[in-house]
Write a protein that binds this DNA or RNA. Structure first.
Lengths: 148, 148
DNA sequence: TATTGTTATACTCTATAACTATA
DNA sequence: TATAGTTATAGAGTATAACAATA
């Protein structure tokens, strides 16, 4: 790799970190709009199209199972999701969205799209596709997606 | 905008969000490596090349001043940074890194680069530059960078 | 024995409100 | 009056350790 390429790598890392902070700030703001933490918001997003066990939720989020218990407790108390015993494993507990939770998750997803669109819409269709391709190219190389 | 372009926007938003979560997961892991929260790590990064007032730190991070007081308290107790009265404004307090904080910030920045390089290095130099350019193109359109 | 989940505990992060000191 | 910072308080997020139930 040439010295110029090393510099390009460093500049890319900077741009990646900055973009991520900006994106997360937007997601945080959207979550707060619905009185949710970003983690709670992610829980709703994950459950949007699945019914999962507590342990699977812990895996998706990269958090300890005791943390999930608290997270689910609070969301359940708000009527956003429900627990039910898993029929196949007597130890396991399933979690899934309530109707209210589904509605909130849907509205949240729409607001995320609206909130980020000012950024993405400065690009032409061709540029947008090129950026998507590049991001999808580097994503599989991420070091252990466990806590994604 | 054509229907195909709308789809491209949606896919870009997905890629952006996924990339951001992956990047933040890496930054979280690096922070934890040094027994720092991501916020503490950001404080060190901000102070790496500046001496700022408490209120400026609050602006950079998009957090309340009382939150900054606690953050700085804990970091100061660990010997990573120091407070000193601002000479121009009797109400203000300056914050700056201690030698230990500077050393930790430097090592942290290096580890961030090392931890993200598996992702960035799958690209050729030309691709890396193109991705950087596209990210830098959309960044200024971010809705209110206040909490960046 | 190992796994799933909950609870108790402790600490950090965060905001709000009330306060002091300075501008 | 307004701004800078601290403190008290309260709630959420997080992990560790200890536990009960099931596999």
């Amino acid at each position: 790799m040439t010295a110029a390429d090393s510099a390009a790598q460093r500049e890319l890392i900077d741009a990646l970190v900055t973009t991520s902070f900006v994106t997360m700030a937007v997601l945080n703001r959207v979550s707060a709009e619905y009185d949710l933490s970003l983690t709670q918001f992610r829980v709703l997003a994950i459950l949007r199209d699945r019914r999962v066990k507590m342990s699977e939720l812990a895996d998706y989020l990269g958090l300890d199972k005791s943390t999930i218990s608290g997270l689910v407790d609070r969301a359940e108390k708000r009527g956003l999701l429900q627990r039910a015993p898993n029929t196949a494993d007597g130890r396991a507990v399933d979690v899934f969205l309530s109707p209210a939770g589904t509605e909130l998750a849907d509205r949240g997803a729409a607001l995320v799209a609206r909130s980020l669109s000012p950024m993405t819409s400065v690009l032409t269709g061709t540029e947008a596709r090129r950026l998507t391709t590049l991001l999808e190219h580097i994503l599989p190389a991420a070091p252990s997606l466990r806590a994604s």
